[in-house]
Amino acid sequence: MSRRRRTIWEEFDELFNRMWEEFEHMREEIERRITESARYPDWSCSTKPLWDSSRKCLEPLYDIHETEDAIEVTVDLPGVEDKKDISINIKENMLEIEAKIKKPVRFERWGTSQREMAFAHYYKQIQIPEEKIDLEKAKATFKNGILRVILPLKKKGFRINIE
């Protein structure tokens, strides 16, 4: 007994149903993700850990603040003892900060492979608008483990005095 050949409309119906099912799955998945990220946003989004096992370095916390005259960047560098252990460079619109931690940090009991790691320095690249900065006048201070970098902005415009 030969099977009846399906009509083009039946083929189309089946294809449409399969596509509809796929869309339904996608919709459910999107809905699930939206609900999850709304309920516990900071744990469901993919923030990367602040350490890099391949470079054996920690990523420091930083803050950036722009005023009319300058961009001020502060970087939290606990464990760094001396300003001589910090290097600051600006290249290709990046402020690059590297600092040596006096006593390498170990998380002795944490995780599986991480427990054997020792982190000996910090490394961070922060995007900055290099062309707007007066690089010659940039300066930095280091106190109580906090690095503050002041990047003065190039003066633009002309001041008009009121007579």
Binding site: D42, T47, L58, L61, D76, G79, F107
Partner: peptide, 17 residues
């Protein structure tokens, strides 16, 4: 100093909230 190092991730997430 150790606390400051070990609390960086929680600080980052708290800051976002």
């Amino acid at each position: 100093e150790e606390i400051r190092i070990k609390m960086r991730e929680l600080m980052q997430k708290t800051d976002q909230t």
